[in-house]
Design a protein around this nucleic acid. Structure first.
Length: 642
DNA sequence: GATCACTTGTTCCCG
DNA sequence: ACAAGTGATC
């Protein structure tokens, strides 16, 4: 199929696909077909004979990368199988693993999992620093990198912070690892310091989707990769919701100032949503004051008006029951469960709704239920697997010799590490010497005992040769804590039965750390508004639309300006949420959007969910309807009592 | 003197 | 879940 199949010349979508300006920006609202047009642009490049290895399509998630690939395969585009569609994080990690890059940076491309950070924190809790302080300092270190503050003139580091950073860096170097937040910035630094590196000119065409969610470091990598490449960025500042990873809507807004000769293309027609939802979304987003003037999102009359309801319940319990009942009714009326998306901004709302829907016998999955590696047993098994594969994995070793101690055996480990640094031995070697009595160090009894147990476990696992048995040993059938990771392991194995152990560990790691939210499912999905990005569903229910949750309460101590920006981002989040609803008139799906909220909930639950209730009544917090409900404009239906 | 395991008072979770 | 304080142990 040709790249322009179904595209009309002269339309913006056609222009996006065909534009030959070496800089293209597309800013367009939800459901306007940005990603679709970008896919067609990739198809055109491939059909024109650009080598797949010279094209870099950057997507926000792995699922989006697979979507792109599927689309190109479906169009039978030449060379689409060699196309390396990827997320920026994965690209940087792969590049950092290259031998030459490794030599230049002196850092190992071994990112720390969330749970592997724990012993690092314990090791850094010295010199009067508690756990909270260490976490805060670590966050500040990663934030500075993400914002490329080292590039900002006049940026100074406080002495205590500098001391901490030196210790942190020493820990990471000793353990041959890096923080997840360092991956992109380190690659940026490499590119920046090595203008002659091959990595700078590897691509002739770079295409970036969801550009508004890139932070400074990520934008910097794109910039440095694009000196000799054509660049096409696609996004929507109104959907910028990732300030917690330091992305800012100004990134895509100001890109045009740095690239004044770029082609700047917009798409206005919202092909996804029913017209009433489009009107409401327009009204809502117009309340953002810091928003530059731009063309509005246009409703497409062919989509129909849609079914929109706003329901207030007396209590959270009633809201939970009401939503569960609505879902059951939809399913009974023949709506496929996979067509229903429930969005909730808090676990306190999402989890009871999940339980109620599951209790009603409807297939449902919650993104709030614990992830694969949340249980200690799963973490332990995972660390063992890593160490089994590579005895030189210092992070896994550090984790395993500390996990059974409240203090992570930090004191004993410090003696071990000091010894390593004095002699040049590896931690494994020093622990072996201690175990065999060749060496004695004070305060290492606990850690050596842990090491002894660990060796015994590894020896047992080492006798197992096939992966199925290994999985049974690590994640036993029927053990609740490791059920998720067992399922995932078996999936990995099923997809690739002849895989070797090293590749299996790598695949499992990817599956665990970058979980996918599949697009085609046969169950009701419950998730946060953030996770719903990139998804759409004929029935979308946004729950818990109350002040304190949506918008979430700004943190204490925020300046007036910061609060204003925070509320604007929360508004964008709601905007993203309500525009998930999809009308498919051809299939008789008109598109249903339901917004719900409760008048009261138990005071303690409210506090835990982050709400600071204005009023309290007999142990209940009195909740206020989200301010955003009133901002949906005259097209919004009257809220009704549930 | 440093470290560990155990207690008893504050604080804070989100993506 | 964390900080801070206690006596017992290395």
């Amino acid at each position: 199929m040709a790249w322009h199949h179904g595209l009309t010349p002269g339309t913006p979508a056609y222009q996006i696909a065909s534009e030959t300006n070496n800089r293209v920006r597309v800013v367009a609202g939800p459901g306007t077909g940005k990603s679709f047009a970008m896919k067609r642009r990739v198809a055109r490049l491939l059909e024109e004979g650009v080598a797949p290895s010279r094209i870099l399509p950057v997507t926000f998630t792995r699922v989006a990368a697979e979507d792109l690939h599927r689309e190109l395969v479906g169009m039978d585009v030449p060379g689409c199988d060699e196309l390396e569609g990827t997320t920026l994080h994965r690209l940087c990690l792969r590049r950092l693993s290259r031998q030459a890059v490794l030599a230049a940076t002196g850092r190992h491309a071994r990112p720390l999992n969330q749970f592997e950070v724990e012993p690092m924190i314990a090791d850094l809790m010295r010199n009067g620093r508690g756990k909270r302080v260490v976490r805060k300092l670590q966050a500040a270190y990663e934030a500075a990198w993400a914002r490329l503050q080292q590039e900002e003139p006049g940026h100074a580091v406080v002495a205590e912070d500098a001391a901490f950073q030196a210790e942190l860096l020493a820990w990471l170097r000793f353990h041959e690892a890096m923080l997840i937040g360092e991956v992109v910035p380190l690659f940026f630094d490499f590119l920046s310091a090595n203008p002659a590196a091959n990595e700078r000119s590897e691509y002739s065409h770079i295409l970036v989707d969801e550009y508004q969610d890139l932070n400074k470091a990520e934008q910097g990598v794109i910039r440095l990769l694009s000196t000799t490449a054509d660049v096409c960025i696609v996004g929507d500042d109104d959907q910028s919701i990732y300030s917690f990873k330091h992305a800012h809507p100004d990134g895509i807004r100001e890109w045009i100032n740095d690239n004044p000769d770029a082609a700047d293309i917009g798409l206005e027609g919202c092909r996804r949503c029913p017209t009433r939802v489009v009107e409401m979304a327009r009204s809502l987003i117009a309340h953002n004051g810091n928003r530059p003037e731009r063309r509005q999102l246009d409703p497409m009359p062919a989509n129909g008006v849609g079914d929109v309801r706003i329901i207030q319940y007396g209590t959270l319990d009633a809201e939970v029951g009401g939503v569960s009942q609505l879902v059951s009714q939809f399913v009974a009326d023949g709506v496929p469960p996979g067509d229903i998306l429930v969005l909730a901004q808090s676990k306190a709302v999402g989890t009871p709704i999940f339980e109620a829907i599951a209790g009603a016998g409807v297939a449902v999955r919650s993104e709030y239920t614990e992830a694969e590696l949340n249980s200690l047993d799963a973490q332990r098994a995972f660390a063992l697997l890593k160490l089994l594969d590579d005895r030189g994995d210092r992070v896994a070793l550090r984790w395993l010799v500390g996990v059974d101690s409240d203090t992570w055996n930090a004191a004993g480990y410090r003696r071990v590490r000091e010894r390593c640094e004095a002699t040049g031995d590896t931690p494994w070697a020093v622990l072996e010497q201690l175990r065999d009595g060749i060496l004695t160090l004070r305060y290492t009894d606990n850690i050596v005992q842990a090491f002894r147990d660990l060796c015994a476990e590894l020896d047992t696992l080492e006798t197992v040769s096939d992966l199925n048995t290994l999985i049974d040993g690590l994640f036993p059938d029927g053990q609740a804590e490791t059920r998720e990771i067992r399922t995932l392991s078996l999936q990995v194995l099923e997809g690739n039965p002849d895989i070797n152990r090293t590749d299996f560990v790598a695949e499992l790691l990817t599956a665990v750390t970058q979980p996918e939210i599949p697009t085609n499912v046969d169950y009701v999905r419950i998730m946060s508004l953030h996770k719903s990005k990139g998804l759409s569903a004929p029935v979308t229910i946004v729950c818990g639309c109350v002040e304190g949750l949506l918008p979430r309460r700004p943190e204490d101590g925020m300046a007036v300006q910061q609060v204003a920006e925070y509320i604007e981002e929360q508004r964008r989040l709601f905007y993203v949420g309500i525009t998930r609803v999809k009308a498919v008139p051809g299939e008789g799906k008109s598109g249903t959007l339901i917004l719900t909220y409760a008048q009261r909930m138990p005071y303690g639950d409210a506090r835990r969910a982050g709400i600071q209730p204005a009023r309290q009544d007999y142990g209940d917090a009195v909740l206020l309807a989200s301010r955003f409900i009133n901002e949906l404009g005259p097209q919004a239906p009257e809220p009704v009592r549930g």
